[in-house]
Design a protein around this nucleic acid. Structure first.
Lengths: 209, 209
DNA sequence: TAGATTGTTAATCGATTAACAATC
DNA sequence: TAGATTGTTAATCGATTAACAATC
């Protein structure tokens, strides 16, 4: 049985994975090395890795390739995850064109849009399908992850339809909080990030004076 | 003198701001109301607001419009923030076209790209400028915030140039960790988010069985 | 053996939340 | 007065980190 991994650790594992990918085939690396490239504390790296089955060797470090595999396993990146992108506007297109999916086992199984003029157009080798097909697409293709890239006004409805169709995780890029039951929702919002930066700008300003 | 606001609270303030914007002009609202729409605990809302100058009225609640103003003040959203977007690919274009900037005082002051073929093209009413102008653009236009929307390979260099040019906060959309001194960096990464969702998918699976 | 580095403990720090007196 | 809701305390929970024995 798998150990429960703390949220803060889960959020850092993808960062480690990226750092390890850059070092693939370079033998071993120490928690100190990994900490430096990931921008965290070395104790924290060791603590985080202690939740995995990872085994380092005292005096030597961790085997890079083995550790990569174990981090992937811990995150559950053991099979293909088909995802659906809802909304084929600028953002939906940018997401669909984002190359880095495949590397971690994610694949864009469908892009849908309500706008009949967009349906049938092609994005990154895929044909935009109609929003009316959403439910059948999700169930036919075994999609568990949905990405909302619609305007805010439609986000709640889209979220509900995704959940009803059987999606189990949602990544919401619309700048609004949606409320749906029984699924994991993560929100990514540009203006939230900018506002957090604005706060720190002013804090540093006060220190400077 | 301004009180220091905990990071976790700062991260929630933009969410409250959004919820309050939806209720603008509706008189008062309770911490319970706000908590429900923001998806957090009511005690937490009150605790968060206690770091602001916000004053609620016992038995009544908070004045929506007044509270909005105080949250904005606390975040330092008191003046215009010109920003520069580096990279005019799919992502850069999506970001530039994102409408929600202005509402909080952010404005796209410039979009730059290395690719000579993109320079001169127009995105959302703005002309793409050359990457060689980056330094002068940042200093001439008083830009404090830079957004990196380039491929990973260029992110580090772009980050360093932004810092050297005088930018004080960076939002990094490239899927890599950059290391720069003396500025606040926030990373937004699609595949990190997807990997976190993947972890929770598997966790829920185990519970279901 | 000497040097390096892990794995884990324990101290500390920060965040969340229930509870309730204060008070509108 | 009765009901509602704040502001704050104190308990709890979770996350970080320094320190160091174990051991390669």
């Amino acid at each position: 049985m798998r150990k429960h991994i703390p949220d803060a650790t889960v959020a850092r594992l993808p960062v480690y994975l990226r750092c390890l990918a850059m070092r693939a085939g370079t033998g071993t690396c120490s928690s100190e090395d990994l900490a430096r490239t990931a921008g965290v504390n070395a104790s924290q790296v060791r603590k985080d890795l202690s939740f995995l089955e990872a085994q380092g060797v005292r005096g030597v470090g961790y085997d890079v390739d083995e550790l990569r595999l174990q981090v992937r396993n811990a995150l559950g990146l053991t099979h293909e995850f088909p995802i659906v992108i809802v909304g084929a506007g600028n953002l939906g297109r940018a997401l669909a064109n984002y190359g880095g999916f495949g590397e971690w086992g994610f694949s864009v199984a469908a892009i849908v849009d309500v706008d009949a003029r967009k349906v049938g157009s092609r994005i990154s080798g895929k044909t935009v399908e109609s929003m009316t097909e959403l439910e059948s697409i999700v169930s036919d293709r075994g999609i568990e992850i949905g990405i909302i890239a619609t305007p805010s006004t439609q986000a709640q409805t889209v979220g509900e339809r995704l959940v009803a169709a059987g999606v189990r995780s949602i990544l919401n890029f619309a700048p609004t909080v949606i409320s749906v039951e029984g699924v994991e929702v993560r929100r990514v919002d540009l203006s939230t990030e900018l506002q957090i930066l604005a706060y720190h700008l002013q804090e540093n300003e006060e220190v400077d004076q």
